[in-house]
């Protein structure tokens, strides 16, 4: 394979995983904007999405779209319950408290998934066809197309929600200033709940579409969550377009690094990028410079 087609191949796989990272990054952003909480359990929503989808599909009773809806709605429910039971009761929320709580929730959900589905990773059948499509010397699987198109739909849907629905506008108001939002009669508590539900649902979608490409096991969440966070920080925490760009950028850099340097260090590349961004420009590539308030 010549260099050009090799690079095309890396680009394709980078875009595919980048789309996943972008959706997960958006999940972080939604919760961060509504509550200024970083949810360390974000990756577990992705894992749960994949696992529930596989379990529902394995019953053989439902067509894929129905399983999809069932999986997404059950993970959304988990997100809602999580917010109500673990986040809302915290009396004096500080960063360290919420980090520990969400880390605790993350490994708790992992433990539950391990008990329910065992330790071995499971696969999901591709949504349609398996014969690869040739693109300029490289190949593209139909599932990659699914990943890309679903993520575009999700991103567009989110933009529509933010710009053109009353709830979406209220959420943007919350992100701008919670106190001001409360003063104009927006129920901030409800917006926070919706943000968790939305974030969980998006995580689940990411987990479902990627399950046929990579296997899904109880322990995939931490890694995916971290990479989603990496993408969110890369693009500037709190910015939706930033999250999307950060996701694709991370996916491509990671695919190039894995292909050209070493596949064993693939995961280390993402974290190296994360550390470099955090050290040099914590506001990300597109985020505003942070002003510290005392």
């Amino acid at each position: 394979m010549d260099l050009i087609s090799e690079l095309t191949q890396y680009l394709i796989s980078g875009l595919t995983s980048g789309a996943i990272y972008a959706i997960i990054a958006l999940g972080f952003t939604i919760i961060y904007n509504a509550t200024e909480v970083i949810n360390f359990a974000q990756g577990e929503f992705v894992m749960l999405g994949g696992m529930v989808m596989i379990a529902v599909d394995a019953t053989g009773r439902f067509p894929l779209p129905v399983s999809f809806i069932l999986a997404v709605s059950s993970v959304t429910l988990v997100g809602v319950v999580f917010q109500r039971l673990a986040i809302q009761p915290v009396r004096r929320p500080s960063a360290i408290t919420l980090i520990i709580i969400t880390v605790g929730a993350s490994i708790f959900l992992r433990g539950v998934a391990m008990l329910v589905w065992g330790k071995d990773p499971l696969g999901l059948r591709p949504f349609s066809g398996v014969s690869p499509i040739a693109v300029g010397g490289a190949t593209l699987t139909p599932q990659s197309l699914w990943v890309l198109s679903v993520s575009v739909v999700v991103m567009a849907g989110l933009q529509f929600f933010y710009k053109h629905t009353i709830t979406g506008k209220a959420m943007r108001a919350c992100a701008f200033s919670r106190r001001a939002a409360r003063l104009v009669g927006i129920s901030v508590d409800r917006m926070v709940l919706i943000s968790f539900a939305l974030s969980a649902a998006m995580g689940a979608v990411a987990g479902i579409v990627v399950a046929p490409i990579t296997l899904c096991g109880y322990d995939v969440g931490t890694m995916l969550g971290l990479k989603g966070f990496c993408a969110a920080v890369l693009g500037g925490l709190g910015s939706s377009p930033g999250s999307i760009l950060g996701g694709f950028l991370l996916g491509i850099l990671e695919a190039l690094g894995a292909g050209l340097i070493s596949s064993g260090f693939k995961d280390a590349i993402a974290f190296l990028i994360l550390l470099v961004v955090l050290f040099l420009r914590p506001s990300g590539l597109f985020g505003p410079r942070e002003v510290k308030r005392v």
Partner: peptide, 12 residues
């Protein structure tokens, strides 16, 4: 078998 589940629960 329940180890990580219990640790997570304790933390939360």
């Amino acid at each position: 078998d329940y180890e990580i589940l219990i640790f997570g629960f304790i933390l939360m």
